[in-house]
């Protein structure tokens, strides 16, 4: 291991690090929005839409991100949709993450005790008021640990973006290995890059899980 090589690479890795963060952020934000929509449609059992989104969830959960990306980046242009590599990455992350986020929101919404909903009905709340004042505040906070776990999962998945040549962390390291043969140095910078993002998040997740468990009624 040659530390001067590691040091020289810092600016390049910093750029890659920021790109990983940026793409993760955009993809995860999109995934949360899609997840919320899917989860609401399922919670309120919107006819028709429920089926279509159900099919989306199954496709998204049961196929690997890599082939989803290949399809978006290489196959879509053949049928007339051309999008850049980075946009493909974000779209892929949203497509994959949406269903995982939906499952987390489902878990939270269904975790709200039935008696809460029944009590709300009993005091004459409308469906909308019930959602706004009873189900959502409790359900969303229950789903936070699962959302955080998905955030970690999706950030890790961005490493697959390397296959469509997006210059994020993994791609940068592979470039360095391929062109300069600095294998150890490249892998070291790569692991450090992910560790800086993921270790604090994973500690935060453990803390969130403990808090939410304490926050539930009767514990």
């Amino acid at each position: 291991m040659d530390w001067s090589i590691v040091q020289q690479g810092i600016p390049t890795y910093e750029k890659a690090f920021l790109l990983t963060l940026k793409l993760s952020f955009e993809g995860i934000l999109g995934a949360i929005i899609v997840g919320l929509i899917v989860s609401f449609v399922r919670y309120f059992k919107v006819p028709g839409l429920q089926r279509i989104l159900g099919a989306y969830v199954e496709l998204s959960r049961n196929t690997p991100l890599l082939i989803q990306l290949f399809f978006i980046y290489y196959a879509f242009p053949e049928i007339g949709f051309k999008i850049s590599a980075q946009a493909s990455g974000i779209v892929g992350l949203i497509f994959l993450g949406g269903s995982y986020m939906a499952a987390s929101f489902d878990g939270g919404l269904n975790g709200v005790p039935k008696i809460q909903v029944e009590s709300g009905r009993a005091i004459g709340l409308t469906d909308w008021q019930l959602a706004r004042y009873v189900v959502l505040p409790q359900g969303l906070s229950l789903s936070i640990p699962a959302i955080a776990a998905n955030v970690i999962f999706l950030i890790k998945e961005t490493s697959i973006f390397t296959v469509i040549a997006i210059p994020e962390l993994t791609n940068t390291a592979l470039d360095q290995i391929g062109m300069l043969y600095d294998t150890n140095e490249a892998l070291f910078s790569l692991v450090v890059g992910y560790a800086i993002i993921l270790i604090p998040l994973s500690i935060l997740l453990t803390w969130l899980e403990r808090r939410t468990r304490r926050g539930t009624f009767g514990n």
Partner: peptide
């Protein structure tokens, strides 16, 4: 094994085992 992305795990073993 949980924190490091699987892609990176593959590269770590693929490059480090033979070299080091």
């Amino acid at each position: 094994f949980r924190v490091i992305p699987t892609v990176v795990l593959l590269f770590l073993f693929y490059y480090i085992l033979p070299q080091n």
